[in-house]
Amino acid sequence: MSALVRDLAPLLLAGVLGPAGAGKLFGRGTARQAPRTALARLLRHGGRAALALRVLGALELLLAAALLAPPVTPLPGAAAALLGAGFLGYLGYARAAAPGSSCGCTARRDAPVTWRAFVRAAAVLVGGGAAAAAQRPWWTAAGHRPGAALCLALAAAVALTALSADPDRRWRMPLRRLRLRITGHPLAATGARTAVPIAATVELLERSRAWQSVSRVVRSALLDHWDDGGWRILQFAGVYGGGPAARPVLVLFAVDAGASLDTVREPAVRVSVIDADSGAPVMATA
């Protein structure tokens, strides 16, 4: 089995380098992504980083082609191993110098440097070494044991997908969507809720003339609220009067607990302003 892995390494490695290289070289997102990569910090210029990413992409594509095509020589494998070592060094730099920045590894997304990127780079290093040590062409090895070769290729594809920089987009989100379609929406029961959220009541209040009439008195945001007999009471703190006569007050609003801007355009709101210390009415509105 190990001989098969070694001999199929050029094929598997080409499967890793080819798509990554094509993404960097031809991807429309390369120029957009480049300034946010650690490479831009290393090269001190986003434009130079984009050019470097495209050159790297071309190199990866060339290596992939060399790994796939005859003649069988250790050179492409050794070059890929060197590339993997370079990736590891770059990732180490990126993690230390620009944590949180994108690595530019796949040129598909602004994925930050994570353990997945390190494992991918290590896989290129190890795969390059194995490819350099291959004893026979990959197509010959696959022809001798096609079943085992197919299983190996599938396992490598699964591992590559799992190590992908954007697993959410590739498989986690579709799986979650599928689960929702099969099992139903987990929050379907909330569709039957008729209670108006406090946020909707506050929104209604803040667009009422009642609010406008006393807003100059109100100083706080919502202090407290509760429902009572179909009314929703909203309590604010404020200051009434100016200078030495200024005194702290409570501003109380009573709003229909079942009303929102979707159901009422001209809300009827009851307003009271009372002294915060004594509870005595302070001002009349309307």
Partner: peptide, 10 residues
């Protein structure tokens, strides 16, 4: 609050 003045409008 319920004895307060009623103001209608938006």
């Amino acid at each position: 609050a319920l004895h307060g003045a009623t103001v209608i409008g938006a």
